[in-house]
Design a protein around this nucleic acid. Structure first.
Length: 842
RNA sequence: GCGAGUGUGGCGGAAUUGGUAGACGCGCUGGUCUUAGGAACCAGUCCUUCGGGGUGCAGGUUCGAUUCCUGUCACUCGCACCA
């Protein structure tokens, strides 16, 4: 029996309880069926869910519920990215430990997730701030250390004064802290790095194999890695005073530069070093330039990288009184320093070719340096080449380049690279913009870096059997420096090598480290001896469908790819890529702007669930837009979805179903459908099954899947009022509606399924299959066009419509067609069987 | 500047390999039933001078273009002195 009223509060809590108690979503490795690993990016436990979360988890829930009904053995886990600064700030404010705040938030958000009816296997829940988890994060750090992928060095790093910690390059883009938007300053500190650059080439080339990733994300990663092919060429430094020089100039020290345009080598009119270049100080020592250069460098130091590298930053530089020799032309070239040369990229030194590089052109124009064209722009005459108003950066024919004159610049590139190599003055080289991953954080709420500093043995890793290095508890939280340093119990340790007193590393790891391997832990979440077993990860990895926001396109997704490759090379994994397919969902907006606390345009999921229920919330969010697109929130639209669910409910309340309770589970039975309407109804049912299956499974277009079911419901409403309506077919239609809607609105379909007298959970049912034979129609609507314009639509028997010849004959024989054609000449008739006839007349 | 993407009714969006543009939903208009309804149901809803015209704009290919090509404009996102 089905109640008259759709009472979502009762229904949703009832089924959530049943699912929880029956372990409906528990998964084991030994089940039958192909595995499917569906994953949403796990949340930071900020306090409560927002609509972006609801969207993310609803999408994955639809996919995983659908796959489960299709017979896959589905892993659909959830966990918490639980380390991070907000918990520490809350600790300062409330004088409670970060863990208390974090676990409170987790328990509230867990309740919210359950309230949405997302089909998680809660037994696999993972929390990155628990010692059982971060123990293995530390273990991974040590594995990488063993592989030589971890190092410590003093470096100029991005420091956020407000967060009182360093940031990775990826977290300080544009010169502002990703978290708090404070301006980042440069500081020189001893820091821990992971050698992600060892994997630059693999991280880049493996992107080609990720066919299930959006092109946009791959492009972003490619740009971030920034591979460029070029030549590292060496310029010979000339002595301070040439007249004093005795002996062979060719043996002098050399300054390497990196260039992607070795073909412009004869166009070099100066050489520029980054002001921070290590050679600079020595080059000007005891020369008249020493004082001015020192002043120049001092002025630059105050600036952070962002203002230094801003596009509109004025190029400034100075000649430093020295010269060097061009390796190919042998020409004497003045040596400059300038702010536009970056110390971290390439060799920190650049050859200046004003005629063929726009930056050099601007710089040379300002300082009156030589502009010498060496590549002739196609369509120009040589005399013309000197009157440049801007740099010519394209390809053309070589001029002013000695024996290379007359070659195409592309050819000259290779010839000149060969020449440089032949002279022993350099070599071809590939450079990357990607830099090593700085993982040190001077904060408390993170996984401690498991290293010791021993006065006698130096840096010593904590032995594996001493993991985890636990976070101390005797901490006073206040703003300023890393609170861990205030814990004497934590700092002092015993050196495992010499037994002496060693100091513990007080930096913790970037939380991205924790979130770069959580999908591996889900495969084997309770393993106490390993981070994960090879057997389990071999079974589940890689993730078949990953879903999350584009904002993680670089950070999280690149780090995870790196860690998986590194762990594979340590012998712990078989796969080299974590995520087979990636779907980047759009933002949830209100009034055209992303919902955010700052703008005050948030709609609370809790409110929506309270007013309409979780099923309605899920349905709306999936119906309003395809998943990749931004979604405009609309309260009226939510009401529309609520109305639709009620409409389905009332359909199921038809008294005819009560009389035949429990009957008619057989989907494909041929039966003997009687009237035309019934046959048509059957066709609509099977057509809908076909479309919805395709839309969910192949296209991820949940909006059109839902609209197809809405259409079917509309049809069923019309059909059931017809005199000859067949209860069996009606029932089949309702079953199809419920099964097809099951991934979207799990609670209400469970309730109706049970109410209709089918004992088992609807999620134990197989996904419905359509029958090809039911899709056939007896009459087809064919469009009649004259010169491509629609003139008429005619209904024809299928035999005629599906045959090209019969259709053509039939149509051209029609009186109205004769009339349209009349005295004009029929040039051509295009026939698309079953669809359309286009008659071309003149 | 470079790269990627998106432009369709009042709104969110459909149109799967070129073949009925505007499915489905929201909103709006009128109606039925009701003491009432922000419930439910029914009808209508791109523009139109009723010939037609319409998918940002201008061309092209084609019997036929929202779909393919060229150019252009607008917006969004990413990168941005990387030599």
């Amino acid at each position: 029996m089905i109640k008259e009223r759709y009472d979502f509060v009762d229904i949703e809590s009832k089924w959530q309880r049943i699912w929880r108690e029956s372990g409906a979503n528990r998964v084991r490795e030994d089940e039958t069926g192909e595995k499917f690993y569906g994953l949403a990016m796990f949340p930071y436990p900020s306090g409560r869910l927002h609509m972006g979360h609801v969207r993310n988890y609803s999408i994955v829930d639809v996919i995983t519920r659908f796959k489960r009904m299709q017979g896959f053995n589905v892993l659909h886990p959830i966990g918490w990215d639980a380390f991070g600064l907000p918990a520490e700030n809350a600790a300062i404010k409330n004088q409670r430990p970060p863990s208390a705040w974090t676990y409170d938030n987790i328990s509230h958000m867990r309740t919210q997730l359950e309230g949405l009816g997302i089909s998680y296997d809660w037994e696999r829940e993972v929390t990155t701030c628990s010692p059982e988890y971060y123990r293995w994060t530390q273990w991974i750090f040590l594995e990488l250390y063993k592989q030589g992928l971890v190092y410590r060095k003093e470096a100029n790093v991005n420091w956020c004064p407000s967060c009182a910690t360093v940031l990775a390059n990826e977290q300080a883009e544009g010169g502002f802290c990703e978290r708090c938007s404070s301006e980042v300053v440069l500081r020189s500190l001893e820091q821990w790095f992971l050698k992600i650059t060892d994997y630059s080439e693999q991280l880049l080339s493996d992107l080609d194999g990720l066919v299930g990733w959006p092109e946009k994300v791959k492009t972003m990663q490619r740009n971030w890695i920034g591979r460029s092919e070029g030549v590292q060429a060496e310029f010979i430094l000339l002595p301070v005073d040439l007249d004093d020089s005795s002996g062979d100039v060719g043996c002098g020290p050399r300054i390497p530069v990196f260039t992607t345009r070795v073909d412009t080598l004869f166009g070099v009119s100066y050489l520029v070093l980054a002001p921070e270049h290590p050679l600079v100080v020595g080059l000007v020592k005891d020369t008249p330039y020493e004082e001015d250069v020192a002043e120049f460098v001092r002025n630059l130091k105050g600036l952070n990288e962002a203002s230094r590298t801003a596009e509109d930053a004025e190029k400034v530089g100075m000649f430093i009184g020295r010269y060097c020799l061009n390796p190919l032309s042998g020409e004497r070239v003045p040596l400059w320093i300038a702010n536009y040369v970056l110390p971290q990229y390439g060799t920190g030194a650049v050859m200046g070719v004003p005629a063929h590089d726009s930056r050099d052109f601007v710089f040379a124009s300002k300082y009156g340096l030589d502009v010498r064209p060496v590549i002739l722009e196609p369509g120009r005459v040589p005399e013309d080449a000197y009157s440049l108003s801007e740099a010519f950066v394209g390809n053309g024919v070589m001029i002013n380049s000695g024996r290379f004159n007359g070659m195409k610049s592309e050819e000259a590139w290779n010839e000149m690279a060969d020449a440089v190599e032949g002279l022993g003055m350099g070599a071809r080289k590939v450079n990357y913009r990607l830099r090593d991953w700085l993982i040190s954080r001077q904060r408390f709420w993170g996984a401690p870096i498991p290293m010791l500093c021993c006065p006698t043995c130096g840096l010593v890793p904590v032995p594996e059997d001493q993991l985890p290095v636990m976070l101390p508890e005797d901490i006073v939280f206040k703003t300023g420096e890393n609170p861990i340093r205030s814990s004497p119990s934590f700092r002092e340790a015993v050196c495992p090598l010499c037994g002496g007193v060693a100091m513990r590393e007080t930096d913790t790891m970037d939380t991205f480290m924790c979130s770069s391997w959580y999908f591996l832990r889900y495969c084997d979440p309770h393993n106490e001896r390993q981070a994960f077993s090879r057997e389990k990860t071999d079974y589940w990895m890689g993730v078949d469908q990953y879903v999350g926001g584009v904002e993680h396109a670089i950070l999280h997704l690149l780090y995870s790819r790196f860690l998986v490759k590194a762990l594979r090379d340590c012998g712990h994994l078989s796969v080299g890529e974590p995520f087979e397919n990636l779907l980047t969902q759009g933002m949830v907006c209100l009034d055209g702007a992303k919902m955010s606390k700052k703008l005050g345009n948030v709609v609370s999921p809790e409110d929506i669930v309270a007013r309409f229920g979780a099923d309605t919330a899920r349905l709306f969010i999936l119906f309003a837009a395809p998943p990749e697109r931004d979604l405009e929130w609309n309260d009226r639209g939510v009401e529309g979805c609520f109305r639709f669910i009620n409409r389905v409910w009332r359909l199921a309340c038809d008294p005819r179903f009560v009389d035949s309770e429990g009957e008619g589970l057989d989907f494909g039975s041929e039966g003997t459908p009687l009237g035309k309407d019934t046959r048509e109804m059957l066709r609509r049912i099977h057509m809908t099954i076909k479309k919805v299956t395709y839309d969910i499974g192949v296209r991820f277009n949940f909006n059109t899947a839902i609209s197809a079911v809405m259409e079917l419901v509309n049809e069923l409403y019309l059909y059931k009022e017809k005199p000859g309506a067949d209860v069996g077919v009606l029932r089949q239609g309702l079953q199809a509606v419920l099964l097809l809607l099951a991934p979207f609105v799990p609670h209400v379909v469970e309730e109706l399924w049970q109410g209709l007298g089918y004992g088992e959970s609807i999620f134990r049912q197989a996904w419905p299959r359509y029958r090809e034979s039911f899709l056939e129609t007896e009459s087809v609507t064919v469009v009649l066009q004259i010169n491509g314009k629609v003139r008429d639509r005619i209904s024809l028997p299928a035999e005629i419509a599906s045959s090209e010849d019969a259709l053509k004959e039939y149509v051209t024989g029609l009186p109205k067609v004769r009339q349209w054609v009349d005295e004009k000449t029929m040039v051509k008739t295009v026939v698309v069987p079953g669809k359309l006839v286009n008659i071309v007349v003149r």
